[in-house]
């Protein structure tokens, strides 16, 4: 088709679409679209009765973005920073704004350290981490792992084999550290005896 002014016709007209698809055109008028316009000034919606909300008490020092003036009046208290990962997280928050790659790279690094620390700590607890149950890998058997992949042109199959490596990383690192520690102890014992 030559490149001309007119929009090429669709396979179906609006009338045909309205007949085929329930609700076709119900929101044709932008006034019926709740997200239009993007901003609409509408203060005090719902049950909010405050100008500025009450402040949630800060039971322990709470890390925050240096782009904020103060700790926001409400915040989550899910997992306070702890251990080496906690030190890295606090550094990321204290030193770098959200605009700096260092902020995010430190937080990602802290996440990896946290997983390692937590896995190691779990071995000394009543609930050691269990890669079999925690990865849900047994669902491969119950939920047709093979049939879901065989004969499919799925683009994700090529990299799925990498996932076990990511899961195994804390165990491999812990194993290497443990092996080195044992060897060092043996050596020092060997040199003293």
């Amino acid at each position: 088709m030559a490149y001309t002014q007119q929009k090429p016709p669709n396979p179906e007209t609006s009338g045909q679409l309205r007949a085929r698809i329930p609700g076709w055109g119900a929101d044709l008028d932008p006034k019926d679209r709740p997200a239009v316009p993007k901003e609409q000034f509408e203060p005090h919606p719902y049950g909010a009765e405050w100008d500025f909300p009450d402040r949630q008490p800060e039971e322990r020092p709470r890390e925050r973005s240096i782009e904020h003036e103060f700790l926001t009046p409400v915040f989550g208290t899910s997992c306070p920073p702890h251990g080496v990962s906690g030190v890295i997280r606090r550094t990321a928050y204290q030193r770098y704004s959200e605009g700096r790659a260092a902020h995010w790279l430190l937080l990602i690094a802290a996440d990896r350290v946290d997983a390692l620390e937590s896995t190691l700590r779990s071995f000394a607890s009543r609930h050691p981490d269990n890669p079999v149950t925690e990865t849900g890998i047994l669902s491969e058997i119950k939920h047709h792992g093979l049939r879901s992949r065989r004969g499919q042109k799925r683009a994700d199959l090529i990299h799925q084999p990498l996932d076990p490596l990511i899961v195994a990383a804390p165990w491999i690192i812990a194993g290497v550290l443990g092996y080195r520690a044992v060897r060092r102890i043996r050596r020092s014992q060997g040199s003293t005896s």
Binding site: S118, S122, D129
Partner: peptide
């Protein structure tokens, strides 16, 4: 619990 690992506690 870490990448690809969760449990119920």
């Amino acid at each position: 619990r870490g990448p690809y690992r969760i449990r119920v506690e």
